[in-house]
Design a binder for these strands. Sequence first.
DNA 1: TTGTAGGCGTTATCAC
DNA 2: GTGATAACGCCTACAA
Lengths: 342, 342
Amino acid sequence: MTGKIRKGVRATILDVAARAGVSIKTVSRVFNAEPNVREETRDRVIAAAQEIDYHPNVAARGLAGKRSFLIGMVHGNPSPYYVADLNAGVLDRLRGEPYRLLVLPFESADAMSGKVLAMARSSGLDGLILSPPLGDDSATIAELTAAGFPFVRIAPSSATWLTPEVRMDDVAAAQDITEYLIGLGHRRIAIIRGDPSHPSCTARLIGYRKAMRRAGLEIDPMLVEEGLYTFDSGMMAARRLLASRTRPSAIFASNDDMAAGALFAANEMGVRVPDKLSLAGFDDNPIASIVWPRLTTISQPTIDMARAATDALLALLDGDESVGRVTMPYRLVVRGSTAPPG
Amino acid sequence: MTGKIRKGVRATILDVAARAGVSIKTVSRVFNAEPNVREETRDRVIAAAQEIDYHPNVAARGLAGKRSFLIGMVHGNPSPYYVADLNAGVLDRLRGEPYRLLVLPFESADAMSGKVLAMARSSGLDGLILSPPLGDDSATIAELTAAGFPFVRIAPSSATWLTPEVRMDDVAAAQDITEYLIGLGHRRIAIIRGDPSHPSCTARLIGYRKAMRRAGLEIDPMLVEEGLYTFDSGMMAARRLLASRTRPSAIFASNDDMAAGALFAANEMGVRVPDKLSLAGFDDNPIASIVWPRLTTISQPTIDMARAATDALLALLDGDESVGRVTMPYRLVVRGSTAPPG
DNA sequence: TTGTAGGCGTTATCAC
DNA sequence: GTGATAACGCCTACAA
């Protein structure tokens, strides 16, 4: 006789079945929301399960059903806020689903390249969410695609691969914010580029160029500075820009961390923002609202994007073949760091 | 005949065994680093495994061995930097280990209370790392302890429970930084408290009081403001402090986020830091170095603590009974936000 | 040092 | 609608 609560030992599907007076297959049906179970039977099973505190054994499920209910996310982004938002979005979408989120260690895109599939396999993942910059690593995409491994990319910039992705129009957004600066009356507008291994870096530069060209403004090569999406790189780039004889009246930093770094540099050098220098960022992460003055920036719907990516991945895992590209809206947020040139 | 590479199908231990000309038990021994395998045999097995790209099936391993090699971390902290550091520390320690890190969704300590064990069970976790404030939730500790579920707490403040933990001396650190302010010549030193549901809040208050008392300074109740460890709460608390007739000459905010908020408020109100107001934080997260001026703060070794906690958990899972309390060192970091009273 | 048998708790197949 | 029974891939015990 099974079905009683043996203390210290987890209840199994057999216990539930015995207690509810059904076969284990019926219990399985109930827990997997399969059809063909009479309502009354279902209720009895659920009651029995609750009484003995039954939780399906994930390992057994994974072994028999050939899925682990594990989704992986590779974090290779320098901004903890971005990562936190990604996490939040994924977990939010996963609520109520049987899937769980695994965080994979990340060294660098280079180091990971060509090893992602092996990691996914050895961790027993069902699917993967790739955030920048790994979502643009061609070796990774190639091996995953070749193996038929389900994955969704967040904010990739290359349209080369026709794999499911959730993106934002970085070019248009960068163009918008640059045009906003132009509209304020700025003419000498510098850009601090991001990490060149993140393709969003290129997209944002293109948007900037488009805006400048449309306004008939020349792009002085001196106005294009290199950065790495980090606070320090933004600070150093701004120091160079502000030290030059042909100092810009406005700087568009390709993300908020770098914009905060630029603001720091301006403070150091006694350049008042926004009186003497307008500063715009990109992302609208909390940093943008922490510094003084607050940053004008592009609000990127990171949480929504992560949610949408998870949604797409779940559909993929469900066998849905129609998952394609989703583009999410952005928003220009005007705050205190920008003003007409002084 | 097994042992050949069937494409699209993952190799199993049988394939490796056949290819290496040994039994599956020997392959198992090799992959679990068990003794009693001749070196030559081991090499043959490893070679065979590599040739057919064999990765042990985690689910099967978990089912047979009764462990999932899954460690869970519950994130309920408002500071993404703190969370990112925790993650980094755990993942760093896990490198080379067969264990993987699962991120559990978190709503609030209240909502989670009494549900953590169920989540751990249904996710099939082997062990849990509890970060603040959940590490101080007595219902959670009680149920985990009662069930004999392995867990380690990071930075808990209540010493009530004799469970494995990695901590820092918050009281001494808060006392140190307050004494530093006193040493600069400040007399009216305010404190902005953190979220009262995080016991570190109380510890830091105690440290502040100790320092004030030792210096013979009276603690005006007006100088103790409430906060929630968030930027906004720090900003609002500082507004109240700075608006009062008896404005303090220095503020000790119980974490960097609130200190950054206080700095923002000071900027808003035209109070120059550090000339007219000294400001100290706690944690030394990147925010402390992003704002202008940079914050004097206590450097908390979050990554090291997470690493140590993981280390302790792995020992626990390994059957080590001697895991107890580990106390990590902190450091006072003096930067531009503090100066003698002006 | 190596191998054999049995079982871990599910899901899938097919019969009823 | 429901149920027997065979996988699933590995580990633990025990043998050799």
